[in-house]
């Protein structure tokens, strides 16, 4: 996981050649009246690859949100409805959902009947894929939210107050950082699954979301803290302090706005990794619990039941997961380039 040095957006176009006098790179070159965010958006829009994959991801989200529509109005089958002995008519011929030796049917490419085939319990893969996407994306979003909020709060707190608070928070984060995300995830996930804290127990899909959100906190905490450490020494923070503003005011109105581009850059990064970790934890039995569908449960079921008989049960959810995560990653890369103009040099050459 990368530690991205935070830069406020719009520090001037830095894409000039080397050996260029610093004077040219000043703010004077910026179009007047264009804010840093607007400038970043302009740069992002020009990055067609990033925009394309951002659109792909948006499309995936929309399609997954429409899962109930597809399930009730087009496929006429629920996501958890197993039909191992069922038959249906395809192009005038009667087809078995599972063959006599229990091998599920592959993709029929008929939008109404097992478009992407069936799994070993006779469930419709296409319907489950959409419902599973809802779960995976929801977990990714909630986990990202948790990580960003906790990581930013703790980071600002530790960096601003330093001293003992910083020492304690930093070592706590170091401990979490020490462990492989998957090992820590299955450990906490299992403990929560069995014993639970409040509503967080059993098959509740919030359990993996909370676990994943917790595991990635140090990835945000560290860079945020580092940036706050430098920000708090800056003149405008000094000025605020001398005006007698409260710590809370300084943190929220002076420091937080300067962190915004760092935070924004981390959102897609954490989101992509959260979705990946959900699948991993689920594969190991500590994530989303059956019969709930998620991309992780589907890949996991496919690996456990359908190699080598019905590989589409691994391939379809797996590819979907990879495409979704890759879209976020590529869009996130473009976002970082847009917010950190210095990195434009990389493209210019």
């Amino acid at each position: 996981m990368s530690v991205i040095s935070g830069q406020s957006p719009g520090q001037g176009p830095g894409e000039l050649g080397e050996g260029f006098d610093a004077g040219f790179e000043s703010e004077g070159q910026l179009p007047p009246g264009v804010g840093p965010w607007k400038l970043a958006w302009r740069r992002l829009r020009r990055n067609r690859v990033a925009m394309f994959f951002g659109f792909v991801f948006l499309l995936i989200v929309v399609v997954c949100l429409l899962a109930p529509v597809y399930s009730t109005d087009i496929a006429h089958i629920g996501p958890n409805y197993g039909n191992p002995t069922g038959t249906f008519t395809l192009n005038g011929k009667t087809q078995f959902v599972l063959s006599q030796i229990g091998i599920p049917i592959g993709p029929t490419w008929d939008i109404h009947h097992y478009f992407l085939g069936a799994d070993d319990q006779g469930r419709d893969v296409a319907v489950r894929l959409l419902y599973g996407g809802r779960t995976s994306l929801m977990i990714g979003a909630v986990a990202t939210l948790i990580t960003m909020i906790i990581g930013t709060l703790l980071g600002v707190f530790a960096g601003y107050f330093r001293g003992w608070w910083d020492a304690i928070l930093r070592s706590a984060n170091d401990v979490v950082w020490t462990y492989p995300a998957v090992l820590l995830g299955i450990t906490i996930g299992t403990v929560l699954n069995i014993h639970g804290i409040g509503p967080l127990h059993g098959t509740n899909a919030l359990v993996p979301a909370v676990v994943i959100g917790f595991v990635y906190v140090p990835y945000v905490f560290r860079p945020v803290r580092g940036q706050v450490l430098t920000l708090r020494e800056r003149d405008f923070v000094d000025a605020a302090r001398q005006q007698g503003l409260s710590h809370w005011r300084i943190m929220t109105s002076e420091i937080l706005p300067n962190l915004s581009s760092t935070i924004v850059v981390f959102v897609p990064l954490i989101m992509a990794n959260s979705i990946l970790l959900e699948a991993g934890l689920t594969y190991l039995g500590a994530g989303v619990q059956p019969p709930n569908a998620s991309w992780g449960t589907m890949i996991s079921d496919g690996i456990n039941n359908d190699i080598p008989t019905a590989f589409h049960n691994v391939l379809i959810p797996g590819l979907m997961l990879v495409i979704a995560v890759m879209s976020i990653n590529i869009f996130g890369d473009g976002l970082r380039d847009a917010l950190d103009p210095r990195s434009k040099i990389r493209v210019a050459r």
Binding site: E15, L16, G17, E18, G19, F20, D21, A348, R349
Partner: peptide
């Protein structure tokens, strides 16, 4: 002035 000096060394690089 710096660009002039660097140019003598062939140091400004890049296709731009």
């Amino acid at each position: 002035k710096s660009v002039t000096a660097m140019t003598l060394m062939g140091l400004p690089r890049g296709s731009n």
